[in-house]
Amino acid sequence: MTDLAQTAPALPASGTRRSLKLARDRLLVLVLILAAWESAGHLGVSEIWISSPSAVGERLWTLALSGELFVHMQRTLTEAALGLALAFAVGVPIGIAMARYKYANEVAEPFIMALYSLPRVALAPLFIIWFGIDLFSKVMMAFSTVIFIFMLNIHEGLKTIDRDLVDLFRTMRAPRALMLSKVILPWLAPWVIASLRIGIGLSLIGAVVAELIGSSAGLGWYIENSAGRLDTTGVFAGLVALTAIAAGGNLLVARLEKRISGWRAA
C-alpha cells in the first residue's frame, strides 16, 4: 500500500523580491530615457522636432486639468474597446464554425486570407463614407483589424484540441452545452487570451487610423490636429496617452491570463 503513498509537492514560491527588483530596474531605464531626451533639447536639438519630457508633462497636466485629456482618451478607448468586444463576439463563433464545418471553411479560406492580408488601414476612407465620421466608423475599423485574429486563433486552437478528451466526454454522453462550457471553451481560453493581447494593440491602431482620417475627437484626432499646427509637444502628449491606454490594456490581459490559464505553465 505504501508504494502508492506520496507527499504533496511544494507549490512554487511567489518570488516577491525578484519582482520588486524588476520594477526598480525598469523604472531606472525609463528615467534614463527621459533624461537623454530632456538633455538632447539642451544640447542643441530643436524642440520643434522632439519637444521635451518636461514640456510634454506640462501639456498633459494642463490637458488633464481642463478635462480635455480624458475626453479624448475616453473617446479612443471606447472606440477600441467596442471594436475589440465586437470582434470577440463575432470572431470566436466564426472560428468555432470554421473548425466544425471543414468543407465550408475550405471554400471560404482564400477569401478570408485575402481579406486578412489586405492592409485594413486602406479601408478607413471607405468606412468613413459608409459609417460616417462619428464613433461607429472607428468601431468598425477597430473591429475589422481585430476580428481575423480571433477567427484564426480560435480555429488554430480547436485544431490542437485533445481528441481523446473529447471522445471520453462523448462516451459519457456529455450534453453539447456541457461539452462547450467544461471542455471546449476552457481549452480555448489561452488562445482567447493570446488574441486579446494582440487585439488590444490592433484595435487601437484601427481606431486611431480612422480618427486620423476623419473625426472631431479622440487621441488620433488630437495628434493629427497638433501635427497640423507643428505642435510637437501636443503630438507627444497624445502618444503618451495612447501608450498609457495600451499599457493598461496589457496589464488587464496579463491579470486575466494569470487567473485563467495557469495550467499551461506545466
Binding site: T171, V183, P186, A266
Partner: peptide, 28 residues
C-alpha cells in the same frame, strides 16, 4: 446503461483540480 471508458492516457481536464476532475463524473 452508463458506459465508463478509460484510456491509456489519463485525459483529465488539465485546468481543473483533482476534485473537479472527479466531480465531473458525478455531474455526468
Amino acid at each position: 446503461e452508463r458506459i465508463g471508458f478509460m484510456f491509456q492516457r489519463d485525459t483529465l481536464l488539465p485546468w481543473a483540480s483533482v476534485a473537479d476532475n472527479i466531480r465531473i463524473g458525478a455531474e455526468l
